[in-house]
Design a protein around this nucleic acid. Sequence first.
RNA 1: GCGCCGGUAGCUCAGUGGAUAGAGCAUCAGUCUUCGGAACUGAGGGCCGGGGGUUCGAAUCCCUCCCGGCGCACCA
Length: 560
Amino acid sequence: MAIGRRIPPILAGDTASDGQTDRKRDSRRASSAGAARRRSGRQNPGHPSGAPDLEHGTGAGSDRIFDPGRRGCFSRASMAGNRTIARYYLTFAGEIKDFMSNEQLAAMAAALRRIVTEGDAYGRSNEGADQKVIVEFVSSNPNGPITVAGGRSAAIGDVLASLLEATGHSVTREYYINDALSSEQMINFGKSVFYRYLEIQGSASPIEGDEPPDWLYEGDYVTAIAREIAASRGGEFEGADLDDPQTAYTFRALSQERMIARQKADLEALDVRFDNWYTESSLHDAGLVSAVVQNLTERGHTFEKDGALWLRSTAFGDDKDRVLVRANGVASYIAGDAAYHKDKFDRGFDKAVNVWSADHAGYVARTKAVVAALGYDPSRIDVLLYERVRIVKDGELIQPSLHGGGALELKSDVIDEIGADAARIFFLLRAPETALDIDLDRARKADGDNPVYAAQSAYARVLKTEPVASIDDTDFSLLTSESETSLIEKLSAFPGEVSLAARERAPHRLVQYVRDLAALVPSLDAGAEVSAARTVLLDATRIVFKNAFALLGVSAPERM
RNA sequence: GCGCCGGUAGCUCAGUGGAUAGAGCAUCAGUCUUCGGAACUGAGGGCCGGGGGUUCGAAUCCCUCCCGGCGCACCA
């Protein structure tokens, strides 16, 4: 919407450049005025003089006249106040001449000056006040490639981290490797690699019957690793016992490094890089897990039952008590997680943001409970849950195959198909709490239906103009068309959008913003007069695109 | 059964208690011409799942019901 600009029918033919636009403005103005009249007619009788004072509570006897623009309009972008003025003109004075106040022009000019002056820094702020935040995302067992769900986590976490950096937080990106010795998943994984190893070595399959055992990881990558081990170590392990835990440990140890390297490569293909890869096993090795169990016991928050040690997490808002140490003496996952989160705070982080898939929703309460039991404010943990991802190809959902290990892979199923830029944008196309279907065909199309193409080609269009050397003498009053004022309004909203997206942990807002911005660009081209003001506008648009792309971690190609 | 997340235009989805609830696609109309896809401009299309409540004001907050997804381990 334009900034308070309306053209009455009687003047439209005189001021606008072509008849078609006239009709558009004409009809808009008419409906606007009508709506405004309806609105005011409704409002005045509806709000007698006894309406409460908005600023000072209900103050009986206040005769303040209700002001519909009071909060929403005045508190918005820097130019917003003028919008209200324009609206009042419309509402009460009716037909107004092509209207743009000096204040509006000044605000537009100031907005453009600010963008061009701040350049790369435009959109950044220091709201975070150097608060130390750790963003933990993707985190999984090192027992397979990164899945598409992991990809969504990666995109959300990485861009959220960038948003937090842009708003002045000190940010660490961390991947938590769930590699504890006691992990059932990892034991089964080690066992699976050994199983495949025996097959490769030509030993008789250790399992009788045709049905694969339910603990078996069936992905091709398991066989691939087993093959590598067979190649480098030969028959060394052929005599090992499948059911001996030590065998699983050995093969897990042999596989783990390769799997982590694979995961790292998968994520780098998405341009996601972590500051830390933090292993769960290191917590156990350092004695931090037993220490935290002891800590909780000393605080009186544990009890014994059925041979296990329990945390009385119900005392801290959880719906059930949780086992910390199993009857077999092995620490539970939550014990490790308690140590991990304590360690985050011990490392000096003020806030811990965790990006988890929605099937971990039930885990939030117990994690906060554990942290509270340890004496920390649970609000220092912020969990961002994201819903499932599906992939559509040729109009149909891709089904995960057994040889893929039962899950779609980030690298081969998404990035290899559409590239890292499109993958990042599509992962962030929806709010995290919304289930997401990624249509690969749409991501490859070169048209407006593809948000990546739309954004990058809009960017390429505004690159065509050379930036001006000085903006001091620019006459911004030339920028009065609706397409121009809408664009300026959008550009000036960028810093607020960055800050909101960071605050609300809503990185997808940035993608929405870029889409909206891109939609405003094409209409600028037609009949554009070459003016300094116009050049500044294009340059400002270029800057905002570039900064938004940088936050999103997508490239800003100079030509499409 | 309990808990969490969704339900907004034909479709896929945005939307910070505040202006006439928006975008893309689809549909329809028009414009341009490089006759190749397209691009551009506009139009139509909404009881914001139902019902209560709070508020000057609710898609937004509260209660309740319905529908869908997910979770409810001495797995992680």
